[in-house]
């Protein structure tokens, strides 16, 4: 679905954001894109959507170069930005103006999503709260039946019930033909939803591994004391939350926040496991 080869990108020539980044993303997956502030999560998503241009390297999205912004590709991309704009029109008018651009737009599904998100269909977009607007664009984006769904901080501004609805809807929206990429800081919001973790750090991909692979190679557990076998540990009320190699094939639940901090702090220790 997506091939990134030796991507070099930056907002100024002296401050590169990505240096020779290469990655391959396939359909049928929900990727969680993680990284510190300024690591380039949003910029990577914008590169994929053709909103910014790489300095060098190649980007192939479903056989297209996104920088060319060809309609055939644009109608297959659902991009939900962190900051968005909706015009001062009613939902009906918005649909009439925008839905016809997407030839697979599913009106029935859109109505179902609005119902699930509890958004009254007669509302004027400008009068909605930020959370409602966000749910509206998510519903519209998913109803386009786009094959590539890119979401930048989609759970920001959503209340607790809406986050649960969001997870449920995203899980049901996943098909074998679709590739979903979600960038977030709220890693707990995406627990149980993403199947592959991509972590950006120091101008490159620090980690790209499926949840299955991570839990097969690492174990996350609470320990009383820290020893040499532990890659990384954080103090908690009852001892330490630790990440360590999974030598004994133990089953554990991925703690994404812990993994994130562990990779940033002890990148060298993890490298041999995920090379």
């Amino acid at each position: 679905m997506i091939n990134i080869n030796n991507l070099n990108f930056g907002y100024s020539k002296h401050k590169p954001l990505f240096k020779n980044m290469s990655m391959r993303l396939s359909n049928g997956h929900i990727y969680g894109l993680l990284g510190k502030n300024g690591a380039g999560k949003s910029s990577l998503l914008k590169n994929l959507a053709g909103l910014v241009y790489a300095q060098s390297g190649t980007l192939d999205v479903m056989g297209f170069n996104p920088a060319k912004r060809q309609p055939a590709l644009l109608e297959q991309i659902c991009f939900i930005p962190e900051e968005f704009y909706l015009p001062s029109v009613k939902i009906d008018a918005y649909l009439k103006a925008n839905a016809p651009f997407y030839k697979n737009f599913d009106h029935q599904y859109f109505a179902t999503l609005l119902k699930e998100f509890d958004i009254p269909a007669s509302n004027k977009l400008i009068e909605m709260s930020y959370g409602q607007k966000k749910k509206f664009i998510i519903a519209f984006g998913l109803a386009t039946q786009a094959k590539l769904v890119i979401m930048d901080e989609p759970t920001n501004g959503l209340d607790i019930p809406s986050k649960a609805q969001f997870r449920k809807i995203m899980a049901s929206a996943m098909t074998d033909e679709r590739c979903i990429i979600i960038s977030t800081h709220q890693v707990r919001d995406l627990d149980n939803l993403i199947d592959t973790v991509i972590m950006l750090d120091e101008n490159d991909v620090a980690l790209k591994a499926s949840v299955e692979e991570i839990t097969a190679k690492l174990t996350f557990k609470k320990v009383k004391e820290v020893d040499d076998s532990i890659f990384y540990a954080e103090p908690s009320l009852s001892g330490y939350n630790a990440v360590m190699p999974n030598y004994h094939h133990e089953e554990s639940k991925l703690d994404m926040e812990l993994l994130f901090n562990a990779i940033l702090a002890e990148k060298i220790k993890f490298k041999p496991l995920f090379s």
Partner: peptide
């Protein structure tokens, strides 16, 4: 010139 509006404009499936 405004990021949110620009994204919406540029992502509209029509050619330049």
């Amino acid at each position: 010139g405004q990021k949110p509006k620009a994204i919406m404009e540029l992502m509209t499936p029509a050619s330049t």
